[in-house]
Computed example of a mutant assay.
Amino acid sequence: MKFAAGATRGLSHETLVTALRAAGEGTRLRILALLGDAELTVKDLTSILGQSQPRISRHLKLLADAGLVVRSVEGAFAFYRLAEDPSGVRVADLVLSQLDPDDPVHRRDRERRSAIRAANAAAAADYFAANAAVWDRIRSLHVPEAQVEAKAVELLTGRTIRALLDVGTGTGRMLELMAPHAQRLVGIDASAAMLAVARANLSAAGVTNARLAQDDVYALSLGTDRFDAVVVHQVLHYLDDPARAVREASRTLRPGGHLLVVDFAPHTMEALRTEAQHRRLGIARHEMADWLADAGLETVACLDLAGSDDTLTVTLWLAVDPRIVADDVRTREGAFA
């Protein structure tokens, strides 16, 4: 067989046999179908499929060994999702495209998965409600969130975004806003509880091109030169070393990629240190300029959104990785390897 220049080669004999053998079993096919548009834990899958934890874990290991699913850890939980490696994607897509969506077995599985999602969403809502008072008070102190969000989206769009990273995703709001503008999105947060809130929010919004992971803003496990856009939205004022977080976020940018930072301008509201655990009372323009320069980025925009005299000012910084785009030889799938 001959391949045209730039064409995608097929899989090796052994790779294809291993993947098809893993997918060609009743329970494992049900697992693949369930993971088609949602991340699930072993506990979720045992509840949906009515099988023991050891059996489900064994099936997941075989699927993972075949490159069809991947595992990520959040605190005490491990989430599974379909693999994003090109070879795994092709086999999973091929198999799942042949499934009848109205098959009674898979329809019942989806119904039980919906019940699991509803329970998870309720738990996330409880956590959000417990913290809502603090968040609502902070929102009341600055320009309306809708204005900030609109300006953030405006700054990021207008260019191709194959892969976007949201550092400190919180409730997942930036992922929800950017989902129509990016092919793939990743949101990371140090808090498993906040990731549960984000997962529930994204599910309710119908966002299917984003994934979430627990990670460290100072030591991201996502590799280098992976993303066309990185967002750090209202995160740096919580950190002891925000400059280090900026450097780490910039490391994940592809050549020509953009970093958007949104945070408060300097202010004097000392109460936020105790009420909301803010480590810094805003960030000055010259500080951010230094941090971006030290990270090897060039600032292309800096905008203030100010409220009334007694409210906080929100500043948006947009910076670009000055390396030429031609230096970037990675494919879209590389961002999720």
Rank of each mutant, 00 (worst) to 15 (best):
residue 169 T to Y: 10
residue 223 G to Y: 07
residue 224 T to C: 07
residue 237 H to F: 13
residue 272 L to R: 00
residue 177 L to E: 05
residue 172 G to P: 13
residue 294 D to C: 07
residue 261 V to M: 08
residue 290 D to I: 08
residue 269 M to D: 13
residue 214 Q to W: 07
residue 282 G to L: 00
residue 258 H to V: 14
residue 196 A to P: 04
residue 217 V to H: 05
residue 268 T to L: 07
residue 236 L to D: 07
residue 188 I to G: 09
residue 250 S to Q: 14
residue 289 A to Q: 14
residue 287 E to H: 11
residue 200 A to D: 01
residue 221 S to M: 05
residue 247 R to W: 02
residue 289 A to V: 09
residue 280 R to V: 06
residue 232 V to N: 00
residue 217 V to F: 10
residue 175 L to Y: 07
residue 231 V to A: 14
residue 190 A to Y: 14
residue 245 A to D: 02
residue 192 A to F: 07
residue 272 L to T: 00
residue 214 Q to N: 11
residue 242 P to L: 04
residue 246 V to I: 14
residue 269 M to G: 00
residue 291 W to M: 13
residue 257 G to M: 01
residue 157 T to A: 12
residue 265 A to D: 02
residue 259 L to G: 02
residue 270 E to S: 02
residue 207 V to A: 12
residue 247 R to Q: 14
residue 213 A to C: 15
residue 214 Q to A: 15
residue 289 A to K: 15
residue 187 G to M: 06
residue 243 A to M: 09
residue 212 L to P: 06
residue 263 D to A: 07
residue 235 V to N: 01
residue 246 V to H: 13
residue 195 L to K: 11
residue 209 N to G: 12
residue 239 L to D: 00
residue 276 A to G: 08
residue 228 D to G: 11
residue 193 A to I: 08
residue 198 A to F: 06
residue 230 V to N: 04
residue 287 E to L: 12
residue 280 R to S: 13
residue 267 H to E: 00
residue 260 L to V: 12
residue 269 M to S: 10
residue 159 R to W: 11
residue 221 S to P: 04
residue 215 D to A: 15
residue 254 R to P: 04
residue 185 L to E: 02
residue 237 H to C: 08
residue 227 F to S: 02
residue 225 D to S: 09
residue 223 G to D: 01
residue 197 V to S: 11
residue 290 D to F: 07
residue 270 E to C: 00
residue 187 G to E: 02
residue 204 A to T: 15
residue 243 A to R: 15
residue 209 N to F: 12
residue 226 R to L: 03
residue 274 T to Q: 13
residue 272 L to W: 00
residue 264 F to Q: 05
residue 267 H to M: 01
residue 285 R to H: 12
residue 185 L to F: 11
residue 222 L to Q: 10
residue 232 V to Q: 06
residue 265 A to V: 03
residue 165 L to M: 08
residue 261 V to P: 03
residue 250 S to A: 15
residue 206 G to Y: 07
residue 221 S to Q: 13
residue 194 M to G: 01
residue 180 P to K: 09
